[in-house]
Design a protein around this nucleic acid. Sequence first.
DNA 1: GCGACGCTTCGGCCCACACCGAAGTGTCAC
DNA 2: GTGACACTTCGGTGTGGGCCGAAGCGTCGC
Lengths: 234, 234
Amino acid sequence: MTAPQLASLAGLLADDTRAAFLLALLDGRAWTASELAGHARVAPATATEHLHKLVAGGLLTERRQGRHRYVQLAGPHVAQLIEDLTSHVEPRPGAPRTLRAATASAALTRGRTCYDHLAGKLGVAITDALTRDGLLTQEAGFALTGRGVAWLTGTLGADLDVPGSRRPLVRGCLDWTERRQHLAGVAGARLCRTLLDRGWIARIGSGRAVRVTPDGTRGLTQLFGDEPAWTAFA
Amino acid sequence: MTAPQLASLAGLLADDTRAAFLLALLDGRAWTASELAGHARVAPATATEHLHKLVAGGLLTERRQGRHRYVQLAGPHVAQLIEDLTSHVEPRPGAPRTLRAATASAALTRGRTCYDHLAGKLGVAITDALTRDGLLTQEAGFALTGRGVAWLTGTLGADLDVPGSRRPLVRGCLDWTERRQHLAGVAGARLCRTLLDRGWIARIGSGRAVRVTPDGTRGLTQLFGDEPAWTAFA
DNA sequence: GCGACGCTTCGGCCCACACCGAAGTGTCAC
DNA sequence: GTGACACTTCGGTGTGGGCCGAAGCGTCGC
């Protein structure tokens, strides 16, 4: 590990436009170059340059498809890298200025995806419920209990077996709105995927925010009992 | 979390000189401004500028003492931030060029401190021994077992109780030479401190490298049995 | 074929910032 | 006091890189 290596990696993140790209891509989906350019309000030529750097730096992967260039985060490790950094940012400074921004901000606070798992009040509440019910322990690090493994594979029908993966089964992820740990890692991803597949949660618009559906309110209440995170806005 | 916030945090690390400062400070000690300037081969004036930025950015704390300015990492969270980033760097490119560099590099590979805990072959070997003996489990995340907690507080006499600390008790830290997880967090720091206090390990010169002392070889062998990491160079 | 569209390349502008030398401030030793 | 030393401030230089507009290239739809 040398200083120039560290500096050049950090340099990839040390630009407002590239940072905006990466935060947008945290939703785990593939974006086109022009979507990102529009999102960050820069010219297409500028977006091209940044995408080249991010791909060359190994943070993004690209897929050419017709006249589109789709990019997405190169993997969970990149998402974790960005999360790591964001969790070191000071508590947020000011309140949203417009009603539209306030609504969007509130939706993100209630529930959202964090690359491939759940975050926000929803993510934290589910993590708390899992812990309370003895499926997850946080006593000494984050770990699934035996019952927790059985519950995820049985009751929820999630497949936790990812042969050859170096990704940890569970991992805590610090939430930047709640300032609390919530479930990430393979188990967090599978849980999120299962809830989406079952229609218990749904994406709001095209961003990272998610809402709990009526089905989800019923299902989560049956599993974990009443919790404001999934009953308040039913 | 906004893009400019992320970018400005990353910007603090995105400079060769500042990165060299931070990597040097990873040994957990306080350095003077001129020591860092010499280490990174820049003029004192340049070092002053960089230190201002790092302190203002909350990554370093400073202590004025006489005509010296001592700086050190602002806490374990900063060390973790740097570790997180370094673990995303590609496997190293080239071999050391000089005998002196090769010797220093080999010493670092054998054993070193990583801010406040042990890394290198030594750190990984101790983590493996703890796991093998059922004191630490890595089955679903890193966690101490009940026996592990008792062992650390009893046999080793380490104090694990840090009231009010938000720092996790145990945490895995990815090693950049071994590419393996090893024990970090409060428990890792206490273990390292205990071994240093007992004289089982000693720092080599003024850097991060540590060696196992003859006492350490005896003690570690008695605790964990024969392992090359503490018997090979006895 | 044609135009519309997504992306890329090129050239040039401009600003941020890393760097240093020189001069200034404060501290220590004598 | 005096000089040595650690650090800071200031002014100036140079360059890396972010940005854009214009032009070029490939793909799509008709």
